[in-house]
Design a protein around this nucleic acid. Structure first.
Lengths: 201, 201
DNA sequence: ACCTGAACACCGTTCAAGT
DNA sequence: ACCTGAACACCGTTCAAGT
C-alpha cells in the first residue's frame, strides 16, 4: 500500500498499475490478485489511505454550515491533487473505514444544523458527489495542457456564439466565465446546503 | 464517426479505441491522428453526436421547472446508457455544437423562471455536472457486476456500523438506502434548482 | 496449498520512411 | 505533401505449471 502511494506521488495514478506495482515488489502481476480483486479496488484502497489525513470537526450548532463547507472543501482539495483518482472514485462508490467516517461527519453537521434526517441522508451523496466531480473535472498532471486546451475550446465557442442563435448564452456571457474555481465551488456548496435544507422529499 | 458510434453500440465505449477504429477503417492507427488529436477528443465527438437526439423544450414561464427537470433527466438518461462515456465527459469539459445548444436551453429555462442571470450562469455548470456525475457513477456494461459488488460493499459496511462509533449513520440508516435512483435524482434536481434560485453570489 | 511465469489479447502515440 | 507501417512502451487478467 505504501508502495502504491509512493508511485502515485512520484509518477501519478496513471502509473499505479498492477504490472508496475508488481515490478516494484519484485514479483509478477498475477501475485497481486491474491490481495486485490482488480485495479479499481486498488485505487479505492488508495483513496481510503488519503482520507485518513482529513481532519473531521466536532459539530457545533453555531457554525455547522461553515464547518461543513470547510470539511467538503478539505475533501475536495485532497482529490483535486489527484484528479484521475477522483475519476476512479466516481465509478467506484468507495467503501473503506475512512470514507465511512467522513459520511458520519457530514451527517453529524447536517444534524447539528437541524436538517431533517431524510434530507440529510440523501444530501450527503450530493455533497460528496459535488466534491468528487469537481476534482474529476480538473485536468490530470499529465493531461493538464490537453484538458486546458479542451476547456479553452468550450470557452472560445461560447464567446463566439451568435446572439441570434443562442440568445441566452450571449446574455450571460460575462457571468459564464466569472469567478475563481474556489468562489464557484463555495457558492455551489451553499446552493446545495440551502437546497438540502429547503426541499422536502 | 458513424463507425465509432456503431462500435460503441455493439461493444461499448471501451472498444472505441484508436487501434480498433483504425482497423475497422482498414488503415493503421496513425492515420486517425490527422482527424483527431487524441482519444479524449474522439470520445468528445461521440458525445456531441448523441446530444443531437436530445429534444429541447421551448421555454414556458408557467412550467419552466418541470421542463428543466425533464431536460436534465433526458440528458442524464442519455449518458446513463453509456456510463464510461460519462466518465470521459467529466474529464473532458465537452465542447461541440450540440453541447452549446444544451447550455443555451438550460439558461433559457432558468431565465424563464426569473433566476438572476449570474446565478443561472453558475448554475448551469452544477446542473450538467449533476447529470454527468450521476451517469458516471453507474456501473459500465462490462463492469456492471463489479461496480455493483463495490456498491454492495459500502451498503453492507454502512449497515453494520456500530451505533457508538458512528451514531449519525446509525440514526439515518433507513434513509440512506431509501428511494429509487429516479426518485433520488429528481429530488437532487429540485434541491439544485431551489438553491440556485435562493443563494445570491 | 500457495504462488507466479508466461501468455493472451489488447492499448496510445510517434516517427521514419514510403507514395 | 500526405499518409501510414512498424515500433516503442506500455496495459489487465488468466491459468497452467511449478514449489
Amino acid at each position: 500500500m505504501a508502495v502504491a502511494l509512493r508511485i502515485m506521488r512520484e509518477e501519478g495514478l496513471e502509473r499505479v498499475t498492477m504490472r508496475r506495482l508488481a515490478a516494484e515488489l519484485d514479483t509478477g502481476p498475477a501475485s497481486l490478485y491474491v490481495y486485490v480483486q482488480n485495479t479499481a479496488e486498488l485505487h479505492g484502497a488508495i483513496l481510503d489511505e488519503l482520507l485518513a489525513d482529513l481532519d473531521l470537526p466536532r459539530p457545533d450548532p453555531g457554525s455547522w454550515r461553515e464547518q461543513l463547507i470547510e470539511l467538503m472543501a478539505g475533501y475536495t482539495r485532497l482529490l483535486i491533487a489527484w484528479p484521475s483518482l477522483a475519476r476512479s472514485v466516481l465509478a467506484l462508490r468507495p467503501s473503506g473505514p475512512h470514507y465511512v467516517r467522513l459520511i458520519d461527519a457530514v451527517l453529524g453537521l447536517l444534524h447539528a444544523g437541524g436538517v431533517p434526517v431524510g434530507q440529510a441522508a440523501w444530501g450527503v451523496d450530493m455533497l460528496l458527489q459535488l466534491g468528487t466531480a469537481t476534482a474529476a473535472e480538473q485536468g490530470t498532471r499529465g493531461e493538464a495542457v490537453d484538458a486546458d486546451g479542451e476547456h479553452q475550446l468550450l470557452v472560445q465557442e461560447l464567446r463566439e456564439v451568435s446572439e441570434q442563435e443562442f440568445p441566452h448564452i450571449a446574455g450571460a456571457r460575462d457571468d459564464l466565465f466569472s469567478g475563481t474555481g474556489e468562489q464557484r465551488f463555495t457558492w455551489a456548496l451553499r446552493v446545495l446546503i440551502a437546497g438540502i435544507q429547503a426541499v422536502p422529499k
